[in-house]
Amino acid sequence: MGRTATLAAWRPDPGNPKQQVAMLVDTTECIGCKACEVACKQWNQNEYRINQELGTYQSHPSLDAQTWTLIKFIEREDEDGVNQWLMQKHNCMHCSEAGCVTACPTDALHYGDYGVVTLDQEKCIGCAYCEPACPFDAIHVDKSAFRQTAQKAGKCTLCFDRISNAMQPACVSTCPTDCIKYGDRGELLKWAYARVEQLKAMGYANANVYGDKELGGLHELYVLLEKPEVYGLPVNPTLSKRLTFWKYGLQPVGKAILGAALFGMVINWFAARRTFKGGHGPGEEAEAPASLHD
């Protein structure tokens, strides 16, 4: 779990796709160096996007189609006024109930193996239904790409190609302080709760684990020093009501009514055929040659 680079890299069991893989970020040891941001772009060959905002160390205002992981910098004081500089590695959380997978019309996004939410950019049509559906703003379509066909969604793939080859995700293997851990989700959770106890003993009362229960269980877990809202993370997030209504409410109802209407028309057709023989209505006058000429 910790530094497994030197020992044989941990590898998910190929025969058991249901095994839950996860990444755990111990934000208490993250030094905000952004090596993960660089390693992620380096491995995935993403393009660099220079759009840092004023007045912050944070490299990007938010994730985008080329930036799949980002360190969020939060400068604050804790309760007794002591300086705090919190750093949170933000990227796709690989939720068990994913908003993006719910919204995606073409099955480009779906629940892959090991609990990873996989995105196949070949299949993506760039409709960006996934963007607003994600409670963590972690998936975006590449609006800046010139050709429309290149406008694809992009998000962290949990380095699926690497982990299935007994390698560590790029960010995990590059992290200077080993604070990004990767391995079996259950064991990482055990380690995380033990770490929280240790932190509480050291005096960090608000230390907590994030990602255990949220949205059916995230596969990006966190040990946080402060409450999630301090980091801007949603507290027990749910999928947007409107999204679920749009997909599971409106759609079936619409289909039902349309079906009923069509059925009604068929019935009407049988009846109307008899009523309007020869296409003549009951109230129609007899065939009067209204001549134009008179």
Binding site: A35, Q42, S173, C175, P176
Partner: peptide, 21 residues
């Protein structure tokens, strides 16, 4: 590709942003 060398006892496979780039 360029990555950290897991065998190096100093860095054990890690690289900071400058090294990774």
């Amino acid at each position: 590709q360029l990555e950290g060398n897991p065998d190096s006892p100093i860095s054990e496979g890690s690289l900071c942003p400058k090294g990774a780039a």
